[in-house]
């Protein structure tokens, strides 16, 4: 399913659906400036911008991370359903050597995948997970380097 969608990426870029989403997101950014005073990555505009990576996945939740202090929890859990497709968007301030990394673990805390490939040193902006086993999953975030850490992680889902 994802392969097919990605082959149609350019068609999607110019599709009515994207225009519609961008319109909605722009309106949300304009009207929804309730949390003024937060750092850039905690702003509605930052969230709205990152949400575009969801494409046709439905927004479920977002998690802001801003300079997490030592010892602070860096993991959240979510119940994923068999038969649903999930997309985890990794969105940070794009500072070199200070990228956010998301790792997905199953209910037994076994690593399923990470947004950073250690072999190729490549960072992926999204993780697509077609769930085939219902259960609690754990999503952990870390940052490379020790510069300012700020980012958003967005969870979306889809069902076909």
């Amino acid at each position: 399913m994802i392969i097919k969608k990605n082959n149609n990426f350019f068609r999607y870029v110019f599709s009515k659906k994207l225009k519609k989403q961008l319109l909605g997101i722009s309106i949300a950014a304009f009207f929804g400036s309730l949390n003024t005073g937060f750092a850039q990555c905690s702003s509605d505009a930052f969230l709205d911008n990152c949400s575009s990576a969801l494409e046709d996945f439905t927004f479920v939740k977002s998690f802001n991370y801003e300079n997490p202090k030592g010892g602070k929890k860096n993991e959240y859990s979510y119940v994923f359903s068999k038969g649903s497709m999930y997309r985890i968007v990794v969105c940070d301030e794009n500072i070199a050597d200070n990228k956010m990394i998301i790792s997905l673990f199953d209910r037994n805390h076994k690593l399923i995948a990470s947004s950073f490939d250690k072999k190729t040193k490549k960072h992926y902006p999204t993780l697509n997970y077609p769930c085939s086993a219902t259960g609690v999953y754990y999503i952990e975030y870390t940052f490379q380097g020790d510069k300012a850490k700020c980012g958003i992680n967005i969870l979306g889902f889809n069902k076909n």
């Binding site: 399923i112 992926y124 902006p125 997970y129």
Partner: peptide
Amino acid sequence: EPETKEVNGQLVIVDNSTS
């Protein structure tokens, strides 16, 4: 064991577990 593959620059997980 799950597998991962890159599809058009995106990381796609192939989940082989079932419930």
